[in-house]
Each structure stands twice: as C-alpha cells, then as structure tokens.
Design a protein around this nucleic acid. Structure first.
Lengths: 200, 200
DNA sequence: TAGTGCTTACTAACACCGTTAGCAAATATA
DNA sequence: TATATTTGCTAACGGTGTTAGTAAGCACTA
C-alpha cells in the first residue's frame, strides 16, 4: 500500500510545520503574542487543522516545555562529561544550566514562568523526571566523597535547584541592573556556596 | 463647598470597590480568569468606568504587585524586629519571606510569575527598591561582623534573594512532591548555607 | 468506470477578551 | 431656569481559544 504511510508522513510534516511556525512567532514577538490563528496563517492552513495535531493551545505549549527540558538535559550531560570529579561536574553543570537559560530565554520562560504547572501536569513531563535524576546522580556522588555521606540527596538537590532557578529568574526579569561581570561573580559565589553546602 | 471633596471620596470608593472585587475574583479563580468585564459586573458598573481609575488591565495588576511588596516588606520588618543579631534577623526574615509566599500565593505569583516585568516596569515599583534596601541593611550588618567585612553587599543580597525565590517558586509550581516537613528541612538547609556564605 | 464511504480541511460561528468612540443623562454652575 | 460640564452608558472594533456543520477530495468496491 504505502498510502497510509504517506498520509502519516504528511501529517507529521504538518505537525512539525506547526511547531516551527510557532517557534518563529515566539522568537519574533514572545509567548504572549502567540496565537493559534497566527500559526494557522503562517503554515497556510485553517485554524481547526491545528486542533487535529494538538488538543489545545496548552498542549502545544507543553510540547515546547518538554523540548526545552530535553535540550537542557542534553546540555547538562555534555557539561558533566567534561569534568572528572563530582564537584567539578556539578560546577560545570551549574554553568551549563545558566548558559542554557541565557541562550534560550524563550524556553526558560515557558518552562518555569508561564502557566504555573499544577501537580498533575508536572507528573506528565517525563523530561523533568530525567532532569531530576541526572542532577541527583552527580549530587549523590558528591555527597559520598564529602564529610557527611549520609546527607539526603533529594534535600541537597532541591537546595541546588532552588539556587539555580532563583538566580536565573531574578536576573531574567531584570529586577537588578547588574552587569554581566557582576552576575558572573554572584553566580560563582552561589555555586561555590552550594557545593560547599553539599560536601559539608 | 465640599462637593468636590464628596466626589473625590465617591471616586475613591469606586476605586477600592474595583480592587476588592478584583481580589475576590482572583481568590476564586486565579489571575488568569480575571477580566475587566467580570470586575465591572461585580461592582455593578459598566466596563469603561474601570478605565477612568486604571489606565489598563496591566496598570491594575501593577497595583496588586505593589500592594504585595508592601505587605511583604511589612512582614520582613516585623520579623527583623523579633531578633537581636544580624544572623538571627536574616534567618527570621527568610522564614517570613517564605511564610508570606505560602500565605499569599496569589500575590507571590503576580509579583514574580506573571507579566515578566521588564527593566522599565521594575524601576517604577518603589516597593521593590524598599525591599532591596531593607534586606541589604541586615546583610550589611551581618557582613561587618563576619570574617570578610569587605564582602560586596549587593552580591550577597542577590545570592540570598536568588535562593529564597528559587526555593519558593520551585515549591509553588509543585515540581516536587514534597511533604511540608521535607520542605522545612530544605529551607533550613538553604538559609543556614546562605548565612554561612555571607559570614564566610 | 461509476458509485459509495470515509477522511480531510474548510467556513462560520460561539463566547469570550481588552479597549475605546460616541452619546445620553445627570449634575453643578451662572 | 438655562447652560455647561461631568459622568457613565451602550455599542462597537479587533482580537482570542475552540468547535459545530459542511463541502470537497480521496481510496475503495461493485
């Protein structure tokens, strides 16, 4: 036959066209300006077509959230593999995290800022679970070689993550008029502090 | 005369009615469901009346943002005055910050989550400047009695704030399925770590 | 090949939203 | 009492997410 295969392929093409058009619109005018109608206009299809690929606008945005975490996870793994010791790995990963946020502010905004994901939606994001595991593995290693090998991994991970996200979101909303140099200093201060905290 | 005074008073009453109605709607259905039309309906006035009190919906939301920071600042000052040493003060203030976020999730969401305030809008929030000063004063005192009296106050303040906000926002989005007890442990861990970091 | 289902994608509508122009009624002043 | 001014209204504009109903195209069978 091959007919249904071709249809499947064409459907997939439309789907990726939707995602690409949406991403272009977001790069141009931000998430707030993104609308189903504009996407439909960009891909030269009618509005309801989009609803055959995504249940709702929220579902479409969720797709980008997941993609954001996928890319972040990839960056983190790459950073981890550049260093040998757990402490150096975690430091590299922290910098990769920040770098990701700076290079992809649109993704980061969506991943944390908008929508305020509920407990239900969070559970559906597999990539977030992977993110958690990825970090916890390194932190676990760091704990083992530290002064307090019985420290709670989840506790230390949450501490670490809180610091990272707090730093990023405060600097992303431009609440402080800081130079890049200053931000770098604050960030190093943070990372060193948290690594010391984990090692105890 | 007294006529223009009465008018002024009546106008003020409508203004507070708008804010109160808006707040009720937010408590019921969240910020996302808030609309000018619903507010107008609740106060039994027509829609354009709201625009004689607030330039736009954003301006109305900004009013709540400022009120949120006003309340937060009051809580912080109260917490500060319960303790004697800078370290104890900062610890009390950190807990007050968290407590505020937990007790007023609607305010906290608006203050940080929505709208993604730009550099321009941030400058207009006087309360945010006060917040910064309030915290920096205590941190300055803590630095002076620490091992590194020449530490940068702004740097340490940003570290401190990043940690607080990161912790709150990560736990508010329910990204972790943590018990209150666990959250309390993480938080204490964080606060102790950051105070140690400031003292050095 | 003609006819029959089924899928696809469309138009058009619904119910909202923020915002504002234009007008009528109520009020204050002369 | 008559004029001027303020006040608050209706109704509209251009947008949003979402969906019901319909026409056209396609693959398949007789």
């Amino acid at each position: 036959m091959g007919i249904i295969e071709r249809k499947q392929r064409q459907k997939e093409e439309v789907r990726t066209a939707i995602l690409e058009a949406a991403w272009q619109l977001v790069l141009q005018d931000g998430w707030q300006a993104l609308s189903i109608r504009k996407i439909a206009d960009a891909i030269e299809y009618s509005v309801p077509v989009i609803y055959t690929h995504f249940e709702s606008k929220d579902a479409l945005l969720m797709e980008f959230t997941r993609e954001g975490f996928r890319q972040l996870n990839a960056d983190l793994e790459e950073a981890r593999d550049t260093a040998a010791t757990p402490a150096a790995q975690l430091e590299a990963m922290a910098h990769a995290y920040w770098s990701f946020a700076v290079r992809n502010p649109e993704y980061y905004q969506l991943m944390y800022g908008l929508g305020m994901p509920t407990c239900e939606t969070v559970r559906q994001i597999l990539e977030l679970v992977q993110f958690s595991q990825l970090n916890r593995a390194v932190i676990q290693a760091l704990i083992r070689e530290g002064r307090n090998p019985e420290a709670d991994v989840m506790l230390k991970f949450t501490t670490y993550w809180s610091m990272l996200h707090g730093f990023v979101s405060i600097h992303m909303t431009s609440a402080t008029h800081a130079t890049d140099e200053f931000k770098q200093m604050v960030f190093s201060d943070l990372v060193k502090g948290v690594i010391k905290n984990i090692r105890d």
